[in-house]
Design a protein around this nucleic acid. Structure first.
Lengths: 199, 199, 199, 199
DNA sequence: TATGAATGAGCATTCATTCAT
DNA sequence: GATGAATGAATGCTCATTCAT
């Protein structure tokens, strides 16, 4: 029954260990030795599966983004921007809660490592923003939301999404994704100002 | 008179050089040698003013936060939350534009260095959030904004502020702080959804 | 019937592969992995036949010397030194041409490996020189060649023999062993200086 | 008085130490640590003067060849080939005796290291041979020596020169360069065969 | 018997920090 | 004070060898 430790699962074992360590210490303070110990294997074994420490990080990053990309696709099932946005926020919160270590690496270490990785991460960010911006532009055209600078709106929404990982990952903020997403979506859609009409 | 290079100005010279280099390469890829060259002094001289590379970063961080704290105080001059928020956003945008290198270091390298610095930076963030949260709580009590989760609102607003440094610092996004702040503030206060009443 | 790969032939298979690789890359740059691939077998299998990389080299060296020793025995069939020498040179040239890879290993890697192997190779060289030196001493006694320092003559002749492997192995120098041996032998026996008697 | 340990002499110090160690152990078995200890300095200091272990070897090789090239120039002062050859052999013997460690590195490690160094060393060898071959061709034309294959003669003479370093360096063979050179030159010029005319 | 995944001793190299001048 | 040559602890990576299957 131990046979499920196939070649693929050994790779995953290393990846898991690396995620733990990278998340705990950050890339530069993580030693290959420590990752090996965490995985319960020898140092050299890592190099049977990954050619270098940097490539190990890259693989983790790419795997993470593939996982995360799923979040964006949640918007496709909805028709109105309001529903799309809520689905997006909910999915994002869920991802952060389900993959704390990954989130930490993804949003923390990204920009500090090497130029190629930096480029890659930036491109990912741009792609995501283009997707969102088009979504907003279309909603403006459709008249669902007010006429406004779609670029600025993209930046703002992107920032809001980013804002959650800190509390969730660093402070272990417990939150129901559905509830929080609804509240946040309400803020965005209807604003926070008290409606004087209600008085 | 070479003596105008007083003790204090030599310290600043090093700090400036370090900001350049840290910003350009990130902390871990910055060499003390390079900082010295950038400052036009000898490598050993840095150690006359700063006990270590890490402490040099800490000093820069602290100095930056002192500078940035000023932004928060801009809210004090305003009475309504709407005005406070706009002043805050405007001040933040201004700071990012005026101190790109500092911003990069502040929001990029912060969490990856050492545990103590990580704690310190987190504490700064918490302090800022407490200030904002109280501001929001008071506005809710006062009835200026709708009843809502002030913690969640704080996170959202914090995220929006953070969202700007990327475009400004990395993409050299040119924006008029006054105009952008007003637009963003409008989004937050009145929401983005088109008012059906207007139809 | 795959069984024609007997124990002995598998050993030879490995030896052949090792000769190829050692010759191509030199001992230190040759990887056991590469030798295994060259032999078309698994890495571990080599260790069924040779206890270590170094021992594999030693075996090749010893085998080579056994093969080469034959060259020296060619002198036995001749009576005069002149004929012995020509046979020796011819045999040496033939050996270099027929066993380029072996020659390369034999004369290139010998001394750089480990102390024991160095000793062994040196001893082989000394044995060969003793054989030659005795041959010369006897020829001097017999009056076939002039009275001279037989030690010095041995060194000179040894050097001449060594001089051929470079051009043959490294530059792929094509030469007829019989013709070249005759020419070289003539140089040695009669000198290169033009005989003034002939004028 | 310690001030003569200038930047240049520290470089030499390292070079000397490296020559010792490389000569004793061969390149691949020499550790940077050991070279540092031999030089009485810290390991890191070597890297202040040489960018890598390989470059350290290269520098030594080049320096050696510059020193050795001098030997070839000794032939220029002589007019007849006989005198040129004797000067060459004498210079060669002298060089081997005076620079045993260097000789060992030069004639032992050359071909086993890296491709670029291999090329470089081969080119040096070719240059030397071209010089000799032209010298011989000219002597043939002039009628000082018999008509013969000048390429073959070059190989033979090159081999004879090479033959000396083994006994001198490995067996500490004590020889008077002048005397030995004269004897060897006689062998080459007049041959070893007893002149039947003398009977 | 054959295999190749796993191992870890071993080594070149980096760079923050020191200290003699 | 200012300097930069010297240092060595720290670490990523290699590859001969082992051993479970």
């Amino acid at each position: 029954m131990d046979g499920n430790k196939s070649k693929e699962s050994k790779r995953e074992l290393i990846t898991e260990a690396a995620i733990q360590v990278f998340s705990r210490k950050g890339y530069h303070h993580s030693k290959m030795e420590e990752i090996a110990v965490e995985a319960g294997i020898g140092k050299g074994t890592i190099y049977e599966y990954f050619p270098s420490k940097l490539q190990l990080l890259r693989d983790i990053m790419e795997q993470s983004y593939r996982l995360y990309d799923h979040t964006l696709h949640l918007t496709l099932a909805e028709s109105t921007l309001e529903d799309k946005l809520e689905a997006l926020i909910r999915g994002h919160l869920q991802f952060c809660q389900d993959n704390k270590d990954l989130t930490r690496i993804l949003f923390l270490d990204t920009d500090v490592i090497d130029e190629e990785l930096r480029q890659w991460a930036w491109q990912k960010k741009v792609q995501k923003e283009q997707y969102l911006q088009e979504m907003f532009a279309e909603a403006i055209r459709r008249g669902e939301i007010k006429p406004m600078d779609d670029r600025l709106l993209t930046i703002v929404i992107g920032g809001i999404l980013m804002s959650f990982w800190g509390p969730i990952v660093m402070e272990n903020w417990q939150v129901d994704p559905g509830v929080a997403a609804h509240q946040v979506n309400n803020m965005i859609m209807r604003g926070i100002k008290r409606d004087p009409m209600l008085d």
